[in-house]
Amino acid sequence: MHNKSPLIEVKNLKKYFDINVGMFRSKPLKAVDGVSFSINKGETLGLVGESGCGKTTVGRTILHLYTPTDGEIWYNGKQIKNKTDIREFRKKATMVFQDPYSSLDPRMTVSDIIGEPLDINKMYSSKKERRERILELMNHVGLNSEHASRYAHEFSGGQRQRIGIARSLAVNPDFIVCDEPVSALDVSIQAQVINMFEDLQQKLGLTYLFIAHDLLVVRHISDRIAVMYLGKIVELADAAEIYERPLHPYSKALLSAVPVPDPKLARTNNRIMLSGDIPSPLNAPSGCPFRTRCEYATEQCALEPPEFKQVSKGHFVACHKVEEINS
C-alpha cells in the first residue's frame, strides 16, 4: 500500500526542559532523550507509553512547537533547520490535539477555526474560495455545512474533535501528528473518529504519527508501533509483531495490561505486574531507564545504556538481556 521512502525521519531527538530547583539552580528534565525513528509515506506509526514518558513532547518537538535540544528532523529527504524550513514544514505537517475542549478557541466560529490555517498561510484568493474550501473540509470530516457559523461550545466532544481534524487538514498536509486524539472521547465516538482517520488516510494519502496510551486503538490504526519509556523508545516493530511477540520486558508488561473484553479469558491472562513507579525524568536511572523496575536487571544494565538494535527484520529493541529473556 505504501512505498518505502521515509517521509519523516527523526534522528537522536532530544528535548530537555530546564526546571528550577532551588533559587538559582536549574536542572534539565529529560522529557525526550535520544529518540530515533522514521515514518514512511502513507504509514501510521503508533507511539505508546504511560503518561509522562514523553510521547506528547516527541510529537510537539517534531513540529518545532518546542525547540529541540539536540537531534535532527528530516522531512522528505530535507533537514528542517532554520525558520524558513520550519515555516514550509508547517504547511505540510499539522497536528490534532488531545483535548477537544481547549484546542478550539471559544470565541471563534467553526468556519473561522477551520479557516485559520488558510488565513495564516493566505491560501485563498477570494472569500468565496475560502468558504468553499471550509465547507469541503467540513464535509470530509462529516460535519454539516449548517454548523459553520456556530461556536465550538455548542458541539459534543466527538464533533469538536472533527472540527480539530478539519482544521489540521486545511493546508493539505502530508503528515499529521495525532496527539491522543481519541483519549478524551467515549468509546463509541472513539470508533467513529478512528475510522474517520483511516478513511482520510486512504482518501488523502496521509501519514500519521499516532500518539496514544490506549493500546487497542493503537493496534487498530497503526502499521508500526513504538513503545516509549522515560523519554526513550524501548521497542519498535510492526503492529502485529509487537502484539504477538513483544521482546522488551516493558512492552511485555504494557501489553499484558491490555484489557480483554472477555472475563473468562481475562482471568486466565497472566498479567505482568511491575513493581514501583515510573522514576522521575529529573533523576532518570543510569544505564537502561527501565532497570529499576525490571526483573531481569543486572549490573550491566546500570552501567551502560542498551543499544537500540535490530533483532529481526524491522524489529528494534533496546535491551541488554533480549536474547536471554526471549530464548
Binding site: L65, R87, K91, M95, E116, P117, I120, R167, V171
Partner: peptide, 8 residues
C-alpha cells in the same frame, strides 16, 4: 499551540 503549529 494549534495556532502556533499552523505558523501564526
Amino acid at each position: 499551540l494549534s495556532a502556533k503549529a499552523n505558523g501564526a
